[in-house]
Write a protein that binds this DNA or RNA. Structure first.
Length: 385
DNA sequence: AAGTTTGTCAACCGCTGGGTG
DNA sequence: ACACCCAGCGGTTGACAAACT
């Protein structure tokens, strides 16, 4: 194959970087930008392979990297996104703009995974370990449904991450400021309207991601509908065991509350769906028609629908109210039902609160995403008929 | 104090997929 | 269609530090 030898080349240094090497790399990138990583080492006077330089830059030297301890909010974000995306660190990292995927991955493996396991939560499925022992009827079906939901959100986030990257690239080239990535993801997102409008259609990424999933066997529309029906119905009727959604870490003297107080989805849930959903046979979907659904912005409406009665995530770590020694669970079925529901509510909240979908004009590719979401809604509409 | 175990994290490895000629 | 280059990704390793015996 045509694989380049990279670090196998003799004479190239490996292992930890010295301050001198860092300085050389920094100085070169600040002056010239990284350009071709392969060509960079010789130009910068480094005895390293390009790949090593790239990793050193992206994981350590980049000026927009935040180092140090992860905040409680960052931890929650990682856990929630991991519940949706699994070990897709780069996708997770797009929601923690100043953290690298490598750092997040390390932090997960060394801290969060163990912490969850210690609390009896399976770090892979994010469900209480006891659930794994249950029979194949209720709980595993829920898990499968959530997995489908995760596929959907995963595809969406992947597309989003791609846009952020493209936007950053454009921002960099526009500013012509080599070696200095855009100050933050939000800045990149802020300038994304133009990027989106000229980007290749997003749905290609979405479908690729979707069909690339080993568990995906349905066609595009079938899958979207299936995800809608299972995810949202499950979202409403999900039940779990006692510890779902309640995370408590005694070792760090921090408490992660249930992701919001016990709430019921609004009685108007179904009627809201009726209001928002457009009949399946209503003809072609246009950006204009979608924008007017629910009297306003479709995406915002969809997000609000899902979250309409979900209490915002509790990020405070100072108030112990509501938690008990068994992790804030009273032991009643309704409580763990609510806790689990709120846990997934919070995940959806996190994803849907992405700046990507709010207060911006949607580009052409984004409408493909909108149509996927609309498929979901229509399916829910049918189920609620 | 010395040896051992455990934890952390930067760096590497190998695979994948997009782009190009 | 094919071979190759390149960058990105996730998994893994290994050096070092801290904690423990």
């Amino acid at each position: 194959m045509g694989r380049s030898p990279c670090c196998d080349k003799v004479g190239l240094k490996k292992g930890p970087w010295t301050p001198e090497e860092d300085q050389k790399l920094l100085a070169y990138i600040e002056e010239h930008g990284h350009g071709s990583w392969r060509a960079l080492p010789s130009k910068a006077g480094l005895q390293r392979c390009g790949k090593s330089c790239r990793l050193r830059w992206t994981n350590y030297l980049r000026p927009d990297i935040k180092r140090g301890k992860f905040s409680l909010q960052e931890e929650q974000t990682i856990i929630q996104l991991h519940a949706l995306l699994g070990n897709r660190w780069s996708a997770i990292a797009t929601h923690l703009p100043k953290r690298t995927d490598n750092e997040i991955k390390n932090y997960w493996n060394t801290h969060l995974k163990k912490r969850l396991a210690k609390m009896g939560i399976d770090p892979v499925t994010h469900k209480p370990k006891s659930d794994a022992l249950l029979s194949s009827d209720g709980q595993s079906k829920n898990a499968a449904n959530l997995s489908h939901m995760a596929q959907w959100e995963s595809a969406r986030l992947e597309a989003e991450a791609r846009l952020v990257r493209e936007s950053k690239l454009r921002s960099n080239s526009f500013n012509h400021h080599p070696g200095t990535p855009s100050a933050s993801t939000s800045a990149a997102v802020g300038g994304k309207t133009a990027a989106v409008s000229s980007s290749p259609p997003l749905y290609l990424d979405v479908l690729k991601a979707w069909h690339g999933s080993p568990t995906s066997t349905l066609s595009y529309s079938e899958n979207a509908a299936a995800v809608a029906s299972t995810a949202v119905i499950d979202f409403v009727g999900n039940s779990g065991s006692c510890e779902g959604g309640i995370i408590k870490d005694e070792g760090d003297q921090q408490e992660w509350k249930g992701m919001g107080s016990s709430t019921q989805l609004p009685e108007s849930f179904t009627s809201a769906l009726h209001d928002m959903a457009v009949p399946m046979d209503s003809g072609a979907w246009t950006p204009e028609s979608l924008k007017t659904v629910n009297g306003g912005h479709f995406i915002e409406g969809f997000t609000e629908l899902l979250l309409s009665n979900s209490t915002n995530r509790t990020l405070s770590d100072t108030d112990g109210g509501g938690d008990s020694d068994n992790g804030g669970c009273s032991g009643s079925g309704s409580d763990y039902y609510e806790d689990n529901k709120n846990y997934w509510n919070s995940i959806l909240n996190l994803v849907n609160s992405s700046p990507y979908y709010s207060n911006v004009d949607l580009g052409c590719g984004e409408w493909e995403m909108v149509e996927l979401q609309k498929l979901m809604l229509n399916r829910v509409y049918e189920m609620n008929e």
